[in-house]
Computed example of a mutant assay.
Amino acid sequence: MPIIQEQPISPQVSICIWKIDETEEALLAFLELNETEFADFDRVKVASKRLEWLAARNALKQLLNPFGQFWLEKDQFGKPHLTDPCIGVSMSHANGFGAAAINHQGPIGIDIEIERPQIQRISRKFLNENETWAGTDTSKLTQVWGGKEALYKLHGRTQLIFADQLVIEEPSLKHITSGQIIEQNKTETFSLYFDYQSPLHICCAF
């Protein structure tokens, strides 16, 4: 079971990162998907993405094992929820890894990213004027992007403009910062956890 990280990041929030070295059949065997979940999985046609989908789901299962069997359903916006809504859940995957996070006291979003030089070219499309701390540094820009993806997943309701409605504060040495979701006349602030486990940038919003 290739879990490279499983840890609580607050009394209510835990994350799990899964590195894929199994076959699709082996990853499926760890799960007990119901008919709806299997239909969702079967819509994924690219082999590498199928493995990542399963890895993220197995990471979530690892976190939820102490609480018994679970099943997921999606709301009208496509955000996954447990059939028992007491625990907030989120998943992500990238380049041979899957990730999951749970929150016992509210919504949550997780994102994992691998650094790419192209992010410097597209940064003007997602940077807010208050995020000058990122400059042109690829690592910091990846943190901003990952933080905004995590906030977007936490929000999970309507479309958000990354440059205007999502703002990431500079992470501290303790890996915790904050992020804002701005909608009309309302601004909500959430905690953001950042970590780097080569080659992954990990961000969790809660």
Rank of each mutant, 00 (worst) to 15 (best):
M1C: 00
M1I: 04
P2M: 09
P2L: 07
P2D: 10
Q5W: 01
Q5S: 11
E6Q: 15
E6C: 10
P8F: 14
P8R: 14
I9G: 01
I9E: 03
Q12W: 06
V13Y: 07
S14F: 04
S14T: 12
I17M: 11
W18P: 06
D21K: 14
E22T: 08
T23F: 12
A26V: 10
L27F: 05
L28K: 13
L31Q: 12
L31G: 05
E32R: 14
E32Y: 09
T36E: 15
E37S: 03
F38W: 06
F38H: 12
A39V: 02
A39R: 07
F41R: 11
F41S: 05
F41Y: 15
F41I: 08
R43T: 13
R43E: 12
V44M: 03
V44N: 04
V46P: 04
A47W: 06
S48W: 00
S48L: 05
K49D: 15
L51G: 06
E52K: 10
W53T: 12
W53M: 12
W53F: 15
R57Y: 01
N58P: 09
A59D: 10
L60Y: 06
K61N: 15
L63K: 01
L63I: 02
N65Q: 09
G68K: 04
Q69E: 11
Q69H: 09
W71G: 00
K74Q: 09
K74W: 01
K74T: 03
D75A: 09
F77H: 14
K79I: 01
D84K: 10
I87W: 11
I87N: 11
G88D: 07
S90I: 08
N95F: 08
A99H: 02
A99W: 00
A100C: 11
A101M: 09
I102H: 10
Q105M: 01
G106K: 12
P107H: 07
I108D: 07
I108S: 07
G109K: 05
I110G: 01
I112F: 00
I112C: 02
R116T: 14
I122T: 07
I122E: 00
I122W: 00
I122N: 00
S123G: 09
K125T: 08
F126W: 09
L127Q: 08
L127F: 04
N130E: 14
E131Y: 10
T136K: 15
D137M: 13
S139Y: 14
K140Y: 13
Q143G: 10
W145E: 01
G147T: 02
K148G: 04
A150P: 13
L151G: 03
L154T: 09
G156R: 08
R157D: 04
R157I: 05
Q159T: 15
D164H: 14
Q165L: 02
Q165I: 02
I168P: 09
I168T: 04
E170Q: 14
P171A: 13
S172W: 02
H175W: 04
H175K: 14
S178D: 05
Q180K: 14
Q184K: 14
K186L: 11
T189K: 13
L192V: 08
Y193E: 03
F194H: 15
D195F: 07
D195M: 04
Q197K: 13
S198E: 15
L200M: 05
L200F: 06
I202V: 13
C203P: 03
C203H: 01
